[in-house]
Design a protein around this nucleic acid. Structure first.
Lengths: 170, 170
DNA sequence: GAGCGCATGTAAGCTGTTACATGATTCT
DNA sequence: AGAATCATGTAACAGCTTACATGCGCTC
């Protein structure tokens, strides 16, 4: 379901586009929020057209098909936005690793958490490099703020854990 | 792969157990970090036994099979812990919803974010109700701290967004 | 005409969800 | 005797990844 929503969202926020264009967009704008490969996108667009959520506006060179969202598609997207109820993501490899940290010796654990810290710092830097919305109210603005808040929290957590581990090794 | 790791981790931290026991454990101890249904666990245990990571210690009443981790299993788990490199989770329904918030009218968006806020508050309360490790260095302790830090960050984010939306509606 | 980027597709395989199915034991 | 719980499995399906496959159009 969410892939459809992401595609409908992109077609709304960025206008009509081909599967190829949409694939590229998943690599940039919406990237920190949702991702998909072309092998998943092309078949999904075919199904969405069959369901009347999008239409082919034109067929260009090299079999390029430009899709646009339909009334039905807009309604579906809006309903999803209004109905949405969050659920906690049930699986996180990083959290699993963290859960099992006491399996390692203290110095090994410090090394492992330092690696995590690096990762969080890199992610934070990436998000900080995205230019903020200039004014008003833009797509992705709030998601970016959420990503920043979470990255900062993770970074602080890693620093705290490293301190705890160092204290316990003395 | 990670399901295996979670199972090996549980067999290490909580000792030998049946598929049924492990299923229940995914419903409590490790629950905020990883989850699995019995329909996924039973076949996985069979494959893990075939791969020599676990063995059947005894077969009890009602076909109950008690599994224990093997040397090979412990080595695999330890190697995973040492090799682990985090990756950013590429998909979050909540972040996608957040990304598309500007599709809604301001008052609708406020309502939607208020629902998110509720969700984060509930999650935080759940994690806070887990008793902290009494002393020293326990399995799950750092993962719990991570969950708390992230939940608090999400809650603050929601409050900030609600403020921004209210300011923009005036 | 060789190579690159554009553009779309298919297939195999893994992970995870939901539902179906069965039988044993314990408790009331 | 009936219900609840213990205990294990299978099947169908959805979502996603990786790899394979093909052909057009532009530029050097």
């Amino acid at each position: 379901m969410s892939l459809r929503i992401a595609l409908l969202g992109l077609l709304t926020t960025a206008g009509a586009a081909s599967g190829y264009d949409l694939t590229k967009k998943f690599g940039v704008s919406i990237n920190h929020v949702w991702q998909a490969q072309h092998s998943q996108i092309y078949p999904e667009l075919v199904k969405m057209e069959a369901d009347g959520l999008i239409t082919v506006l034109e067929e260009g060179a090299r079999g390029r098909k430009i899709y646009a969202i339909t009334e039905d598609g807009s309604r579906t997207l809006r309903e999803w936005m209004l109905d949405f109820h969050p659920t906690a993501p049930p699986r996180s490899e990083t959290a699993l690793h963290t859960f099992l940290l006491p399996l390692l010796e203290t110095d090994e654990a410090i090394e492992a958490v330092t690696r995590l810290r690096e990762h969080f710092a890199t992610r934070l830097a990436q998000l900080e490099s995205i230019p903020p919305a200039p004014e008003g109210y833009r797509f992705g603005q709030f998601a970016l703020q959420l990503g920043l808040a979470q990255s900062r929290a993770c970074l602080e957590w890693a620093d705290g854990v490293i301190d705890q581990l160092k204290a316990s090794s003395r």
